Simulated assay, not measured.
Amino acid sequence: MWEEEAVIEGPYHFDLALERLAKDPLNKVDRVARLIRMPIYEKEPEVAEIQAVGTVDQPAFIVRGSSLQTKQQVMDRTSTVFQWNLPLMKVHEHFSKTALNGIFEQHFGTPIVREFSLFSALIRPIIHQQVNMSFAISLTEQFVKTFGFEIEGAPFFPNPEKVAALDVTELRNLRFSQRKAEYIIDLSKMIVNGELNLEELAKKPDEEVIKELVKIRGIGPWTAQSFLLFGLGRRNLFPMADIGLQNAIKNLYQLDRKPTYEEMEKFSKEWHPYLSYASFYLWRSIETN
């Protein structure tokens, strides 16, 4: 067992991040102790514990792991997932001059937390397609608990090999639609067969990632953008087809109907180059209301 302190640049509101993460039963969060147990997807999976010990303005964390041999990998992965390298003050200063100023003040310092693995970052939005949020969360939980595994109480998504070997009926038994079950199994087979390499894909520009992903059955622009935002941590994504985003903009501008794509394009011009944070804080505005 080891532990390491990490001190980063503020603001960083870990408690608000935990509040959001706690809505997913797959995330092992203790909001009182201000910690989360994070699955680490390496050749030998393990669990890291990340605990806040600082404040919003002076953020500090204790990271704990089980193996000294993988300590640096765990620290690097933790920093990547929680995006400790992005100075949020710069982001907030940018939005202080925009129509989103009030929302950014309300959620000051809330970071975008990335998915714990690239595979889960692509599988999760496919599961979430065209269903309401509560059912999407329940379906994802059942998928992971049925076909994944646990280490020290922390759930891990099944690996591509496991999913590729499934039969469609096994997913149908969990209330997956026929097509969605086929999408997930076929995608996993592509990864196992080497037709899709997520690590190599992660090195490409946004446009190339989207172009490559939308060729795959079951993946449209919304799913590809979600992968870029929450899987790869790209900073300038604005998925205009997202219903939650449309509703948030409707509320913000007090429209009597959902905004058109042309209106969303116009509103978002001043939010570059941090469209991902604009998207995220707009989602936060309707989640908390």
Rank of each mutant, 00 (worst) to 15 (best):
T110W: 15
P39M: 05
L16W: 08
A278K: 02
D242L: 00
L228E: 01
G220Q: 11
E105F: 11
F238Q: 00
I62H: 08
R20S: 01
E208L: 15
R20V: 07
K266T: 13
E212C: 09
F14A: 09
F227G: 07
M89H: 13
L198M: 05
K266H: 15
I243Q: 00
E170G: 05
L255H: 10
S226N: 13
E182A: 03
P111G: 01
Y41S: 11
I103H: 07
L198Y: 12
R257D: 11
L118F: 15
V209H: 15
I249A: 15
K211R: 14
T223F: 02
K269R: 08
Y12M: 12
L245G: 12
Q246C: 06
W283V: 08
L139V: 09
F116R: 04
V74R: 13
T260A: 09
T55M: 03
V131G: 00
L213N: 07
V81N: 10
S79M: 03
E150R: 10
G148H: 01
S117K: 06
Y281E: 14
K203Q: 14
E161L: 10
V7F: 14
H272R: 14
E3I: 14
I184S: 00
N101G: 04
V144G: 04
R77V: 13
Q130Y: 05
R175L: 02
S276M: 06
E161Y: 12
K189Q: 08
I123P: 00
K23Q: 09
V74S: 09
V163K: 01
R175P: 10
G54I: 05
I36G: 12
R31E: 06
L213V: 00
L21N: 03
A202I: 15
R114F: 13
E3T: 15
I8S: 01
A17I: 06
Q178H: 13
T78M: 07
K23N: 12
A33Y: 02
K269A: 09
